[in-house]
Design a binder for these strands. Structure first.
Length: 533
RNA sequence: GCGCCCGUAGCUCAAUAGGAUAGAGCAUCUGCCUUCUAAGCAGAGGGUUGCGUGUUCGAUUCACGCCGGGCGCGCCA
């Protein structure tokens, strides 16, 4: 249960269903916490008006009349404004009731119970080297999206697709072989398109040291995968499933998928290779699935992989891809339709580029990649996660490593953590903790400033909705900044521990509620709250 | 040439799933520490939202066309 915000949404939804026989998607209410326009503002009258070609003001008035019946003392007043806004001024009582419930239920207050089975595939970097800073953004965003989905009661599996087959791997293996020769002092040859990174030498060295008798290819892939897992672990990210492309092929799954499409008449031969007519499903051109050298293309495997996903019966598939894959979306969606599924089941989120802003100007010579592990080691897990989430998924992210390390108010994470530290400090001084909070004292919260602060706090529900429906973690960051700002303001102006014991306990409930919200939000972001600074 | 992302204050970015007077921080200037952490708070200045047209009650947001910046366009993966 999430207090009045949830309740009001349910009520409005019922009214619309009963009277207009339609179901409008969220948001039904926008939370404004603004003196002029009230706590909740709804545009549904305007949405209904354009749908039924009626006067928005009429609809708004009608909805207002029906809304009134549902409330006794939760609402101060309902106003209809200009083109058709319905503005609700929530009563102090409703706000305090929400506060009481929040303190009792803690973070459960904000949860939902949607129960969808969701498969989230992200990172899926080729096992040809350690993860780069670009992969890091996908990893963190994906992990946080998973947390958001889970928080709303969905069953989420995080999956990593291992591209352990194809030319890239072949090139890597041959590079390792040459490096082994180099170490042994034999003649060797590193070609132009080989993997030039120093880490290839490390792999070769380790392979020799361990006197591995196993297959070199398996050794190399396992070795790199262990790096990748370690890099992810350093960011507190763990995957539920690791799906191997090679295994899909060896199990005959890819072949089966191609013949399945062939039976549907969607595969044809041309110039010695086999093509899938993706144009029939909206793609710009048909795509090769079996090359003229009889090898499978990456796309062929991907069709099979998505078929495999679909057969595992998820209600939603979400893929996080880098911007270089945007041209690939139509192709995969076509494949899903060709396989006989609704392409809307797959949601693809493109995570834009990351650039590093560093003072010492890490050289870009020879396209040298900067490893994720170096970044995490330098600025720590929490700051790395936070700064990766700073922008919308679709926006370029400039990662300011200098700022992320800085212990100053310029650093938004410090500012937020500082709020938490101040709260902890007050509780410590009062020799109390969260368990000692008695909600009967909330009745002493009678100043406008206190109630307004409470309003901000309760907007977390709305923030979570936004993040959930848009799959944009950045909204949680933005909320945390706002909350921290308002907390610091409140802190400066109102002393919590004061002569008036009732006031003290009342304000402590506000602090406890803030602590719950801060901890909850940070937990979703995978960041540890700091208790002392 | 085609496709994707971006263009908002001097700088870095916000603006919620079209909403009401486009907001923060930095930098500049002015105040506030015998009082729960000054890593903070209060205040001032700063805008033709790249340009144009359209969609509608309403556009920073959507559509189309320009201009400018970034990236991608394999029988690579």
């Amino acid at each position: 249960m999430r207090g009045f915000y949830q309740k009001f949404s349910e009520i409005l939804n019922d009214i619309i269903k009963n009277n207009y026989e339609v179901e409008l998607g969220p948001p039904l209410w926008e939370v404004s916490a603004c003196k002029e326009f009230g706590d909740l503002s709804s545009m549904v009258a305007l949405r209904l008006a354009s749908k039924f070609k009626k006067e928005p003001l009429e609809i708004a008035t009608d909805l207002k009349l029906k809304l009134v019946n549902y409330f006794k003392d939760e609402v101060e007043k309902i106003e209809i404004i200009k083109p058709g806004f319905i503005n609700i001024f929530v009563s102090k009582k409703a706000l305090l009731d929400s506060l009481n419930t929040l303190i009792k239920e803690k973070e459960n207050f904000f949860k939902n119970n949607f129960k969808e089975r969701v498969l989230l595939e992200f990172v899926s970097a080729n096992p040809t080297g350690p993860l780069s800073v670009a992969h890091g953004r996908q990893a963190v965003v994906g992990d946080v999206i998973a947390n958001i989905l889970k928080f709303y009661g969905n069953i989420v599996e995080k999956e990593y697709y291992i591209n352990d087959y194809g030319k890239q791997i072949e090139v890597l293996i041959s590079t390792v072989k040459e490096r082994i020769k180099e170490i042994k002092g034999e003649d060797f040859c590193i070609s132009q398109d080989a993997y030039l990174g120093e880490y290839v030498k490390d792999i070769a060295k380790t392979y020799l040291e361990k006197r591995e008798t196993t297959d070199l290819e398996n050794f190399v892939i396992d070795y790199i995968l262990s790096w990748i897992k370690k890099d992810l672990k350093a960011l507190d990210i763990e995957f539920d499933n690791w799906i191997s492309q090679k295994k899909l092929i060896n199990d005959g799954y890819v072949e089966k998928t191609i013949s399945f499409l062939n039976e549907k008449g969607l595969i044809y031969e041309n110039e010695g290779s086999k093509w899938f007519c993706s144009t029939k499903f909206g793609d710009d051109k048909d795509r090769v699935v079996i090359k003229s050298d009889k090898e499978l293309t990456y796309f062929a495997c991907d069709i099979a992989y998505h078929k495999n996903k679909l057969e595992r019966n998820y209600q939603k598939l979400i893929n996080l891809w880098g911007p270089d894959h945007h041209g690939y979306i139509k192709r995969v969606k076509s494949a899903i339709e060709a396989l006989g599924y609704d392409k809307e089941i797959l949601k693809i989120i493109i995570i834009q580029l990351v650039t590093l802003k560093t003072k010492e100007k890490m050289s870009k010579r020879k396209g040298k990649v900067i490893f994720l592990s170096d970044l995490v080691q330098r600025i720590g897990k929490d700051a790395t996660r936070f700064y990766y989430l700073l922008r919308k998924n679709s926006s370029h992210l400039e990662f300011d490593t200098q700022l992320a390390q800085e212990a100053s108010f310029n650093n938004a994470l410090y500012y937020i953590q500082y709020a938490n530290a101040r709260i902890e400090s007050i509780f410590k001084k009062a020799k109390l903790n969260g368990k000692d909070i008695d909600v009967t004292f909330t009745k002493y919260l009678d100043q406008e400033e206190e109630i307004n602060y409470l309003r901000i706090l309760l907007q977390f529900s709305n923030c979570l909705d936004k993040a959930y429906y848009t799959l944009e973690p950045v909204f949680i960051i933005e909320f945390l900044k706002t909350l921290a700002t308002n907390f610091h303001k409140f802190y400066e102006r109102n002393k919590v521990l004061c002569e008036d014991k009732n006031k003290t306990y009342a304000r402590l409930t506000l602090l406890e509620a803030t602590r719950i919200v801060l901890h909850c939000a940070l937990k979703i972001l995978g960041i540890k709250p700091v208790e002392k600074m």
